[in-house]
Amino acid sequence: MEGNTVWIIDDDMVSQFAMTYKIEQSYPNYQVVGFYTVEEALTMIKACAETQNGLPNIILLDLVLPEINGWDFLEELENIKGRIDGLEIYIVSAFSNTKDRKLAKEHPLVIGYFDKPINKGSVDEMFDRAII
Protein backbone atom coordinates (compact mmCIF):
# COMPACT_ATOMS: atom_id res chain seq x y z
CA MET A 1 0.00 0.00 0.00
CA GLU A 2 2.62 2.48 -1.08
CA GLY A 3 1.92 5.87 -2.63
CA ASN A 4 -1.42 7.62 -2.52
CA THR A 5 -3.90 5.47 -0.65
CA VAL A 6 -7.48 5.86 0.53
CA TRP A 7 -8.99 3.56 3.12
CA ILE A 8 -12.75 3.15 3.28
CA ILE A 9 -14.11 1.78 6.55
CA ASP A 10 -17.73 0.86 5.95
CA ASP A 11 -19.68 -2.35 6.50
CA ASP A 12 -21.98 -1.66 3.54
CA MET A 13 -20.65 -3.30 0.37
CA VAL A 14 -22.73 -1.06 -1.91
CA SER A 15 -21.45 2.11 -0.24
CA GLN A 16 -17.87 0.89 -0.47
CA PHE A 17 -18.30 0.07 -4.14
CA ALA A 18 -19.86 3.46 -4.91
CA MET A 19 -17.14 5.40 -3.08
CA THR A 20 -14.38 3.33 -4.66
CA TYR A 21 -15.85 3.85 -8.12
CA LYS A 22 -16.13 7.64 -7.70
CA ILE A 23 -12.57 7.90 -6.39
CA GLU A 24 -11.05 5.68 -9.06
CA GLN A 25 -12.85 7.57 -11.84
CA SER A 26 -11.58 10.97 -10.74
CA TYR A 27 -8.31 10.08 -9.00
CA PRO A 28 -6.81 6.99 -10.64
CA ASN A 29 -3.44 7.64 -8.98
CA TYR A 30 -4.98 6.63 -5.63
CA GLN A 31 -5.23 3.05 -4.49
CA VAL A 32 -8.49 2.35 -2.62
CA VAL A 33 -8.52 -0.25 0.17
CA GLY A 34 -11.78 -1.28 1.84
CA PHE A 35 -12.39 -2.54 5.36
CA TYR A 36 -15.73 -3.90 6.51
CA THR A 37 -14.94 -3.68 10.23
CA VAL A 38 -13.14 -1.29 12.52
CA GLU A 39 -11.16 -4.21 13.91
CA GLU A 40 -9.64 -4.95 10.48
CA ALA A 41 -8.72 -1.32 9.93
CA LEU A 42 -7.25 -0.90 13.42
CA THR A 43 -5.08 -3.99 13.03
CA MET A 44 -3.75 -2.67 9.73
CA ILE A 45 -3.22 0.92 10.84
CA LYS A 46 -1.34 -0.18 13.96
CA ALA A 47 0.95 -2.35 11.83
CA CYS A 48 1.50 0.50 9.37
CA ALA A 49 2.16 3.00 12.18
CA GLU A 50 4.75 0.66 13.70
CA THR A 51 6.73 0.45 10.47
CA GLN A 52 5.75 3.93 9.20
CA ASN A 53 5.00 2.16 5.95
CA GLY A 54 1.69 1.85 4.10
CA LEU A 55 -0.27 4.49 5.99
CA PRO A 56 -3.18 5.91 3.99
CA ASN A 57 -3.41 9.54 2.99
CA ILE A 58 -7.17 9.61 3.53
CA ILE A 59 -9.65 7.54 5.54
CA LEU A 60 -13.37 7.64 4.78
CA LEU A 61 -15.09 6.44 7.93
CA ASP A 62 -18.66 5.37 8.46
CA LEU A 63 -19.90 5.92 12.01
CA VAL A 64 -22.48 3.14 12.22
CA LEU A 65 -20.60 -0.15 12.21
CA PRO A 66 -21.20 -3.42 14.03
CA GLU A 67 -19.49 -4.06 17.37
CA ILE A 68 -16.91 -1.25 17.23
CA ASN A 69 -18.23 1.96 15.66
CA GLY A 70 -16.54 4.91 13.98
CA TRP A 71 -16.28 6.92 17.19
CA ASP A 72 -14.51 3.98 18.85
CA PHE A 73 -12.10 3.87 15.91
CA LEU A 74 -11.25 7.55 16.40
CA GLU A 75 -10.73 6.97 20.12
CA GLU A 76 -8.31 4.12 19.38
CA LEU A 77 -6.43 6.29 16.88
CA GLU A 78 -5.80 8.89 19.55
CA ASN A 79 -3.65 6.29 21.33
CA ILE A 80 -1.29 6.10 18.34
CA LYS A 81 -1.66 9.73 17.22
CA GLY A 82 2.01 10.69 17.05
CA ARG A 83 2.68 7.97 14.51
CA ILE A 84 -0.18 8.88 12.15
CA ASP A 85 0.38 12.60 11.67
CA GLY A 86 -0.90 13.95 8.39
CA LEU A 87 -3.71 11.42 8.09
CA GLU A 88 -6.94 13.01 6.80
CA ILE A 89 -10.12 11.44 8.17
CA TYR A 90 -13.56 12.20 6.78
CA ILE A 91 -16.82 10.94 8.23
CA VAL A 92 -19.15 9.59 5.56
CA SER A 93 -22.56 8.74 6.98
CA ALA A 94 -26.06 7.97 5.77
CA PHE A 95 -27.53 9.60 8.85
CA SER A 96 -27.78 13.38 8.97
CA ASN A 97 -27.52 13.51 12.74
CA THR A 98 -26.85 17.05 13.99
CA LYS A 99 -25.13 15.70 17.09
CA ASP A 100 -22.73 13.57 15.01
CA ARG A 101 -21.99 16.50 12.70
CA LYS A 102 -21.17 18.70 15.69
CA LEU A 103 -18.96 16.02 17.28
CA ALA A 104 -17.18 15.42 13.97
CA LYS A 105 -16.57 19.14 13.49
CA GLU A 106 -15.05 19.38 16.96
CA HIS A 107 -13.01 16.16 16.80
CA PRO A 108 -9.29 16.90 16.35
CA LEU A 109 -8.71 13.97 13.97
CA VAL A 110 -11.69 14.64 11.67
CA ILE A 111 -11.27 16.95 8.68
CA GLY A 112 -14.88 16.89 7.43
CA TYR A 113 -18.29 15.21 7.32
CA PHE A 114 -20.15 14.12 4.18
CA ASP A 115 -23.55 12.54 3.64
CA LYS A 116 -23.92 9.25 1.81
CA PRO A 117 -24.02 8.72 -1.00
CA ILE A 118 -21.02 10.92 -1.69
CA ASN A 119 -21.04 12.78 -4.96
CA LYS A 120 -18.24 13.95 -7.22
CA GLY A 121 -18.21 17.37 -5.54
CA SER A 122 -17.63 15.76 -2.13
CA VAL A 123 -14.85 13.59 -3.52
CA ASP A 124 -13.22 16.61 -5.18
CA GLU A 125 -13.43 18.56 -1.92
CA MET A 126 -11.65 15.78 -0.04
CA PHE A 127 -8.97 15.30 -2.66
CA ASP A 128 -8.31 19.00 -3.27
CA ARG A 129 -6.88 19.06 0.26
CA ALA A 130 -4.91 15.84 -0.15
CA ILE A 131 -3.26 16.36 -3.54
CA ILE A 132 0.47 16.00 -2.99
Rank of each mutant, 00 (worst) to 15 (best):
M1S: 15
T5D: 03
T5M: 09
V6N: 01
V6Y: 03
W7L: 03
I8C: 02
D10T: 01
D10N: 03
D10I: 02
D10S: 02
D10E: 04
V14R: 02
S15P: 00
Q16D: 00
Q16F: 00
Q16V: 00
F17P: 00
A18I: 04
Y21P: 00
K22D: 01
K22F: 01
E24I: 01
Q25L: 11
Q25S: 07
S26C: 06
Y27W: 05
Q31Y: 08
G34H: 04
G34M: 05
F35L: 07
T37G: 08
V38T: 15
E40Q: 14
A41M: 11
M44K: 15
I45A: 09
K46T: 15
K46I: 12
K46C: 13
N53C: 13
N53K: 15
L55I: 11
I58M: 03
I58Q: 02
L60H: 02
D62W: 04
L65M: 15
L65T: 05
E67M: 12
N69L: 07
F73D: 04
E75L: 13
E78K: 13
N79G: 15
I80Y: 12
K81I: 15
K81L: 14
K81H: 15
G82Q: 14
G82E: 15
G86C: 10
L87S: 08
E88M: 14
E88V: 07
I89R: 05
I89A: 07
I91K: 01
F95Q: 11
N97S: 08
T98E: 13
D100W: 02
L103I: 00
A104D: 01
K105I: 02
K105Y: 05
P108L: 10
P108I: 12
P108V: 11
G112Q: 05
F114W: 06
K116P: 03
I118F: 04
N119R: 07
N119T: 06
K120P: 00
S122K: 08
V123I: 11
V123G: 01
D124I: 06
F127K: 02
R129K: 13
A130P: 02
